[in-house]
C-alpha cells in the first residue's frame, strides 16, 4: 500500500488541536501525580501518561455528545476531551463537592451524563457489558450512535467481556471495543496473563471485524479511528480494535516500583516513541509548527492546569450530611449507625 502522508489529511488547526490536547492531558495527569504525592488526592488513581494518542485519536472520530463513551478507571482524559469542565474533573479526583460526582466517585468514577460519558469503572472487565448495553440502547431506538468501549489488555481476559462480544456479534451492536494494550495488567506482563497475546483476535470467534493498530502515533490513530467509527456508524455492527500503547508511569499513583515487572531499558525504548514527541517531530519536519510555538503551548498549558488545580482545590469538601444523598432517585437510605 502506498504511504499516505497523514499530516496532509488533517488541517493545521486540527494538528494543533491534537498537540494541545495531548499536552494538556500530560500536564493534567502530572499535576494529579504531584497532588497525590502531597496527599491531596487519595485512594487509587491511574493516569494516562504515555497513552494520550489513543484517547485523542478516537475522540476526533466521534460525534461528541451524541455517541456514547465508556472506559475503566483510567478515565481522566475522556471527560477532559469531551468538554467537561476540567475543574469539575479535577475536583472529583480531589474528592470535592464541586466534582462531577460531587466527590462520591473519585478518580476511578468520573461521569458526565450530559456529554454521554458513562465513566469511570473499577471492576476490571465489568463495564464492557455496560458498553454493550449502551450500544444495545442505540440500536433499540434506531439511532446511529456509536459506542466507544475502552478496556485494558488485562480486562480482555474477563469472562463478561467474552459474553459481551458474543452478544455484540450476535445482535449487531454498534460498539467499538478498544483494547488498550499497554502490555501490562498492573504488574503482570501480557505474556503472563494471556494465552494468546494477539488480543485483536478476541473478536474473531464472534464474527466481529477486528484489527490491531499503533497507538503511539496520533495521526495514525485518528485516521484508523475515523475509518472504524464511520464504518460502525454506517453498518451498525461491532468492531474490535487492539491499540498498542504503553504507560510511561506506574499502574497507579500507588505503584512506585516498576522495576518489579519491567526494566528501565524497556521503558526507555518505549519512551522513544512518546506520542507527544512523535507529533512534535512530524509538526517540525513538515513545517506545521515551530519549536517556539510548541514551547508557548507548553507554558500556556502548564498555567492553565495550575489554574484548574487551584480552582478545584478551592472547592470545599462535601458536607458530612451529603453522605445520604443520591443513593436513590426518590428516597434516602435508613439513617444512622
Amino acid at each position: 500500500m502506498a504511504q499516505v502522508d497523514l499530516t496532509s489529511l488533517e488541517s493545521p488547526a486540527k494538528l494543533e488541536e491534537f498537540y494541545r490536547q495531548m499536552v494538556f492531558i500530560r500536564h493534567f495527569e502530572e499535576r494529579c501525580n504531584v497532588a497525590y504525592r502531597q496527599g491531596l488526592i487519595g485512594g487509587y488513581m491511574h493516569t494516562y501518561i504515555g497513552m494520550e494518542a489513543t484517547g485523542v485519536g478516537f475522540h476526533h472520530a466521534i460525534k461528541v455528545g451524541w455517541d456514547y463513551v465508556i472506559t475503566a478507571y483510567r478515565d481522566h482524559p475522556q471527560p477532559l476531551l469531551m468538554g467537561s469542565d476540567p475543574v469539575a474533573v479535577m475536583a472529583e479526583i480531589m474528592g470535592r463537592k464541586g466534582g462531577l460526582s460531587k466527590g462520591k466517585g473519585g478518580s476511578m468514577h468520573i461521569y458526565d451524563k450530559e456529554r454521554n460519558f458513562f465513566g469511570g469503572w473499577g471492576i476490571v472487565g465489568g463495564h464492557t457489558a455496560l458498553g454493550g448495553g449502551l450500544a444495545f440502547a442505540a440500536k433499540y431506538r434506531g439511532e446511529d450512535r456509536v459506542t466507544l468501549c475502552y478496556l485494558g489488555d488485562g480486562a480482555a481476559n474477563a469472562g463478561v467481556f467474552f459474553e459481551t462480544l458474543n452478544m455484540a456479534g450476535l445482535w449487531d451492536l454498534p460498539c467499538i471495543f478498544i483494547i488498550e494494550n499497554n502490555e501490562f495488567a498492573m504488574g503482570t506482563r501480557l505474556e503472563y496473563h494471556a494465552a494468546d497475546t494477539e488480543l485483536w483476535k478476541r473478536g474473531l470467534p464472534f464474527g466481529i471485524e477486528s484489527e490491531r493498530i499503533d497507538g503511539m502515533d496520533v495521526l495514525q490513530v485518528a485516521a484508523d479511528a475515523r475509518r472504524i467509527v464511520d464504518k460502525v456508524r454506517k453498518e451498525g455492527k461491532p468492531y474490535l480494535v487492539e491499540v498498542m500503547n504503553y504507560r510511561f508511569v506506574g499502574h497507579g499513583a500507588a505503584d512506585n516500583d516498576r522495576q518489579l515487572y519491567r526494566t528501565k531499558e524497556e521503558e526507555e525504548q518505549a519512551m522513544r516513541r512518546d506520542p507527544i514527541a512523535l507529533l512534535e517531530k512530524i509538526l517540525l519536519d513538515r513545517n506545521v509548527m515551530t519549536r517556539e510555538k510548541m514551547e508557548a503551548i507548553e507554558a500556556e498549558t502548564e498555567a492553565r492546569v495550575d489554574e484548574i488545580y487551584e480552582k478545584a482545590k478551592a472547592s470545599p469538601f462535601p458536607d458530612p450530611h451529603e453522605v445520604y444523598d443520591d443513593l436513590y432517585t426518590d428516597l434516602g437510605p435508613e439513617r444512622g449507625h
Partner: peptide, 26 residues
C-alpha cells in the same frame, strides 16, 4: 425479538447489557 430478547446463557453479560441500556433511559 426486539422487545422480547432471548439471550445466551450469560447472566453477567445480559444483566450488564440491561444495565447499560437502562443508563440511557430504557
Amino acid at each position: 425479538e426486539k422487545r422480547v430478547v432471548d439471550t445466551p446463557i450469560v447472566e453477567p453479560g445480559f444483566t450488564g447489557i440491561a444495565i447499560g441500556a437502562a443508563m440511557t433511559g430504557l
